[in-house]
Design a protein around this nucleic acid. Sequence first.
DNA 1: TGTCAACACGAAAACGTTTTCGTTAAATAT
DNA 2: ATATTTAACGAAAACGTTTTCGTGTTGACA
Lengths: 357, 357
Amino acid sequence: MKKKITLKQIAKELDVSVSTVSKALSNSKEISEDTTKKIQAFAKLYNYKPNNIALSLKNRKTRTIGILIPEIVHHFFSTVIRGIERVANRRGYNVIVGLSNESFTKEIINMEMLANGSIDGFILSISKETLLKQDYHHFNATINQGMPIVMFDRVVNEVDCDKVIVDDFNGAVKAVKKLIENNCKNIALITTMDYVSVGRLRTQGYLEALQNSGIVADSNLILKIDDSLDVENNLEILEAEIAQFFKSNPNIDGVFAVNELYAVSAMKVARKLGFTIPEDLQVIGFTDGVLSKHATPSLTTVSQHGQKMGEQAANLLIERLEAEDAETEIYFTNNDRKRDFIKVVIETEIIERESTK
Amino acid sequence: MKKKITLKQIAKELDVSVSTVSKALSNSKEISEDTTKKIQAFAKLYNYKPNNIALSLKNRKTRTIGILIPEIVHHFFSTVIRGIERVANRRGYNVIVGLSNESFTKEIINMEMLANGSIDGFILSISKETLLKQDYHHFNATINQGMPIVMFDRVVNEVDCDKVIVDDFNGAVKAVKKLIENNCKNIALITTMDYVSVGRLRTQGYLEALQNSGIVADSNLILKIDDSLDVENNLEILEAEIAQFFKSNPNIDGVFAVNELYAVSAMKVARKLGFTIPEDLQVIGFTDGVLSKHATPSLTTVSQHGQKMGEQAANLLIERLEAEDAETEIYFTNNDRKRDFIKVVIETEIIERESTK
DNA sequence: TGTCAACACGAAAACGTTTTCGTTAAATAT
DNA sequence: ATATTTAACGAAAACGTTTTCGTGTTGACA
């Protein structure tokens, strides 16, 4: 077992100083051609690679990005990670991921664990519990310590940082508008409780689209699911609620659901109740994932472009990190003040499939 | 912006030495009660947390685990990550993830990027391209450098390390046996090309189950999909192949597919061709993911227990890491030799849903 | 009064780098 | 012949810790 070799060992072996080895390996012209050749050959032979931790300590930066998300077994979040990883890797960064599991406490613990030097900045999406508590001190605390944060999807005005979101509002507007154009007269909304910001925005979009077309919203046509319970493992409850909803409102001919699962479940229930899709009932979901694509009938959705969000977030973060570098290196840089925080809005797009006419 | 405070700054502020501060914070009884109190109060006030990088450098271990997987937008892999993260976090470790994207080169680059001190050990699943090339030198190289590896799911005999796999063979046997018991007479297999080990094992299981029941396998009933093409984005090709397959073999009354997508696609195609499921045709897939649960009809599957695999893998790795620690700390430990490499086999389980009788 | 422990703390090394600043010897310029 | 530059290298500091080994000051004891 040959442990990784260090500069010191190379130096000893070749009977030169550590500094000489370091310089030779970086092709410093302080070192003679002969010794440089000799040292580089030796280093190559022993497959020398500088120790990352030592470099991190010296440079006071780790070139790794911390990702903190509520849940990883989730198509949307994994596409975001893929996006982040893509650009991070391309730009020479690593990513380290933490999962809050939708818990406030785990979010804090994870942040503290990573904020002590392990990473240069965060990309995160806020946990449900945190949104409920509306306690954002941990975000502001880490920002105050000089560690930049980029938030995506589930963001919040109370924290000053770069943000990447999808245009939930207009996405919903587009979807409902499409249903209206397709001649739906009684469009239902299946949504979550209000505290997750994205759910609220999509609900507002629904209302807006109706109003724009001169339709008065009927509160009976809005079904709010309590998503504090784990729906994935309580599918029957969800389906029962939806069934009840359809039975109380037999005139429904269009459904807009704020996520994929609700939409697919709605289709499933509706078909059992005798609806034909899209003839009797048209359905549009939000978030374009695997379910939408493979459902029967396949689901028309509002695409969220998770990967693009991840890429944008990573670019924002890295640019800020490297701007900071420049700022400390160049002494007087008043002309190049830190840029303001920006909010990137990713446009949504309707992907038409079989669940609409 | 208050940057994180260091021992040195505390020492200066309180006019003591760095060593005193360090000892006081760890409650060393070398330090008087008075100074200890004072220092701890000050540290708490300024929210002192030791710098992780410095600790890593000093201890020559990072308490972080490197995960290297072919793809993250994939239900199975994300459940594995969830499992790893769960136990890693519980045992005080972080996880850093790299994606090989099924590419040999990216796998190597990622490994080298992480192996230079950033992590203590790897948990990985081999990329398709690597399996094709059968070139495993990078795995053996990192192991030789003293960095332990745990492989899961896609493993290979040529590398000596701990492994966690599912019982692909017996899972397939069980599934096909179930179809036979359910009175299927002509059971088809939809599988991949042979080079991914798991596909091969599942195929063998299929053959074994047939043979056990005295049925001669019919090669016409085996459809091999070339999964080098990106099926997710070429669904039509996949479906066309399957349709052709059904048409050439109209007597098929049972299908075993080596993954979820093939199974769901088979159901979709079959229904379009007029089959009723499960009456005319019964289907079982491998890998229990979102698709299986939400398909119509929902799919009977062989569950892979991704999360459990992740947990087992993490435990194996961490135990080995901490055994190494013990070995270097206690000088004579001949009685406690390094344990042999073990292969944990996770039992599969059939989850019955609507696609079988 | 002199010896020795106990106490409370500091100095320094170590982890693996990079970089600044010497230092020596040879080469060139004056 | 003397002064100055240049080439080639080494020493040491720094990043933030922990830990080993002093060291000086007490107080107790003979």
